[in-house]
Nucleic acid binder design. Structure first.
Lengths: 235, 235
DNA sequence: GCAAATTTGTACGTATGTATC
DNA sequence: CGATACATACGTACAAATTTG
């Protein structure tokens, strides 16, 4: 099989990144510089660099340049889920920013999973998880507030979600199930995750239940495929 | 924010696919036809169509045309893993093709997981999983043959992996852990999965142990993100 | 089975827009 | 503000795979 110019150049540049010739976040040569070096048209270089963006080895900033991407962290999925713990386990500073907190009506799937009537209002919480000030996931969580009195007040007092739950009487909970799929970022997600549109995401959907097996949280998380790995433990 | 021609066209074509105007696998209009219809250059159409390929809504065949992609199946990850069972659960005909079966030396990670010396030979098995004659995953499995006498012979006799294990005395086994990550297909994987290079994959790595908690299988699976969803049950 | 026509893929070139420095 | 650098979009040409006659 013939290898094409753009493919060869893409592999070549990747090799140089992989050899550690550029630090994470470091700027790569410009399109024109590569164009001169490889003796091809600028568009052929663009094709090559675009391939590396798709594989999320690099990213671009319009008017600025192309830069080397950062490495992955590990997220754990197990019976006792705690986002913060995951990040501690991977040796980084935990951080979460809540970007939305309000009462809304659940959709059909959410109501069904939480075992409530779809007219019953729920607490909707959306936030972004970080590692080293880099966003690595977007999460949305739905709580059946009628089942957990005082939860909204507790959220407003506590910065930590599991602490807020604890204060509202949820001393323990376990994960009932998770569903994992994949898709590419749309432009809103790309904005929140500070990445390019079209990057691969690992999507999880899950249900947590209390010790009486009553659903207490239904959630979605979008992890950046390029920054996260998911670990599933069965005891 | 200004929306560009290629973006608008990409969204428009996607909308038409999503409205069900084309069947799964159906051929779309050619680049030239779209070019005429939208009044833009062929390359602008290519940009738009490429976006839909990246999102795996469509795929292309050189010299032939662009086609609408097929829907997803569900794969279950739980304590009692059986690939075949997953496919039955999703209502399709199970099928697996073994493309490699031999004795080799394990790498460090494999030896460590299987709790054997890295000089000890293992059985390496590689295959492709199908649904309706469409490949949906590539799997590689490593078995500590010293711990499972007669396994190689059994593989050669049986078409089913779990049946082969059963015949070799592994009446039951459970999944110890799974790790999930994501990446894009390289050209070998794209060839095996009959898809375009650069499609997103859900990558799993896992360890199965027998009822004495001895490792009996370490495996990797690459699921096509566009054709599979993964369901994790915790009882 | 072969040749021609069709269709996608690669590669060059030019021009202009737009964000960053 | 001007210079730089990435992004979009036009155009041409030819290569390579598939389909059609």
């Amino acid at each position: 099989m013939k290898t094409f110019a753009w493919k060869y150049i893409s592999d070549q540049i990747y090799k140089e990144i992989n050899e550690g010739r550029y630090l994470e976040g470091q700027k790569l040569p410009t399109e024109n510089e590569y164009s001169l070096r490889f003796g091809v048209n600028r568009h052929t270089i663009r094709r090559a660099l675009n391939e590396l963006i798709r594989k999320s080895y690099i990213y671009s900033r319009k008017g600025s340049g192309f830069y080397v991407s950062e490495k992955k962290t590990i997220h754990f999925i197990n019976q006792r889920p705690r986002f913060t713990k995951s990040l501690i386990a991977s040796g980084d500073t935990p951080l979460t920013k809540i970007i939305r907190l309000e009462y809304i009506k659940p959709n059909e799937e959410e109501a069904k999973n939480l075992k409530i009537k779809k007219e019953e209002m729920v607490i909707f919480l959306e936030g972004i998880g970080y590692r080293n000030n880099t966003p690595i996931c977007i999460y949305k969580k739905i709580f059946p507030s009628n089942r957990i009195p005082g939860l909204m007040a507790s959220f407003k007092k506590n910065s930590s979600i599991s602490k807020a739950l604890f204060d509202s009487g949820i001393k323990d909970y376990i994960r009932s199930y998770s569903i994992i799929s994949s898709k590419l970022t749309n432009h809103v997600e790309a904005f929140l995750l500070k990445c390019n549109q079209g990057e691969p995401l690992i999507c999880t959907k899950n249900l947590n239940v209390n010790n009486k097996k009553e659903p207490i949280e239904f959630g979605y998380t979008l992890f950046m495929g390029s920054r996260v790995e998911i670990y599933i433990e069965n005891n």
